[in-house]
Simulated scan of single mutants.
Amino acid sequence: MKWLILAIFVGCAAYIHLRGRVRLRLSRQITDHSTFMAPLNVLMYACSRVPATRYIAVDEFPELAPLRERWQEIREEALALRAAQQIKASDKYNDVGFNSFFRRGWKRFYLKWYDDAHPSAATLCPRTTELLRSIPSVKAAMFAELPPGSELRKHRDPYAGSLRYHLGLVTPGDDRCYIEVDGERYSWRDGESVMFDETYIHRAENATERDRIILFCDVERPMKYRWAAALNRFVARKFVAAAASPNMDGDATGGLNRAFASFYRVRERAKRLRKTRKKLYYTLKFGLLGALALAIFWPW
């Protein structure tokens, strides 16, 4: 049974790695979060009611139409937040999901995270949070800013239970400001929206002199079967919700983010070791993974 489980895991991990045209280096993919989630993600793709493609037609999600129709109201609240300097990077190690993005200029203001609106969002963005509350399939939402010269390097999100929706609010209207999903580019425009599968490798860049602000949403992946939808909601509620990050005091902080500061100190030491003694770093890294696999699958 152990070897059957191992074979299923390796097969699913290989599928995740080979899926699409753009791939991570094998050494990076082995320890990427998406590898550990591979069996569950393959199940999500198999049960998906919408195509498991890079981009998905926004028309597949008619419940999102009010966001496009009222995009100018949403933009007004985003501009007010920017003027108040509330769309910002985290000043603490309490955003495990997006921590690496802050180093390259990306900023955010959470509107909700797999629950009701943050208190700060309900106070500062009442119209947007009320609109989001009326669309249950939107599980998480934020205003995301990509200032001039900023970039997000190649990455993939770990869990396939949602799809990513972007609505342009303040955009350069220039093809040099874009997101690239599995090698296919999309350039944001004011009032226009796009839906894509964030478990494909993607990257973003703003090579213009103008700012870019979007409404960024995680939308529940529609499922063919009730049991698959129930499983997806269970994982989101019990695990993804634990990555909640606050905008300010009084907002909820999930369990993963409460533990992230301690984990980050260990990670920083590991990164220093990789820079100074790369061979030792990779020997220890893959040695630990091998020891873990041996402990699980050795016929004791």
Rank of each mutant, 00 (worst) to 15 (best):
R233T: 04
L256M: 14
R269V: 05
R269W: 11
K238T: 10
E268R: 15
R237S: 12
N232A: 06
S262V: 04
T253E: 15
S245F: 12
F260P: 02
G254N: 00
Y225N: 08
R269T: 03
F263I: 10
N257H: 04
R226L: 13
A228K: 01
F263S: 05
A252V: 13
A242P: 00
G254Y: 01
S245W: 09
D249C: 04
S245D: 07
N247W: 05
M248V: 14
A242I: 00
Y264I: 02
A259I: 04
M248C: 14
N257M: 05
R267Y: 15
A259C: 09
R258D: 04
S245R: 15
E268L: 13
L256N: 10
S262M: 06
A229H: 05
Y225T: 11
S262N: 03
F260I: 03
R269P: 02
A244G: 12
V240D: 01
T253I: 15
F234G: 00
A259E: 11
G255L: 14
G254I: 00
A261W: 03
N257C: 06
A236Y: 02
S245T: 13
W227I: 11
N247C: 08
A252H: 15
M248E: 15
F234E: 01
S245A: 14
R226H: 10
R233E: 07
N247M: 08
A242S: 09
R265L: 06
R258P: 01
Y264G: 00
A230V: 10
Y264W: 09
G250R: 07
N232F: 05
A241R: 15
R258W: 07
A244L: 11
G255E: 12
A261T: 02
R226F: 07
G255Q: 13
F239Q: 04
L256W: 13
R265Y: 05
R267W: 14
F239A: 05
V266G: 11
R269S: 09
D249L: 11
R265D: 06
V266R: 15
R265N: 01
W227D: 02
D251W: 02
N247S: 08
L231W: 11
N257E: 03
T253C: 12
A243M: 15
M248D: 13
R258L: 12
S262C: 03
D249R: 13
R258C: 09
L231F: 14
Y225C: 04
N232G: 03
A252M: 12
D249V: 07
L231Q: 03
L256P: 00
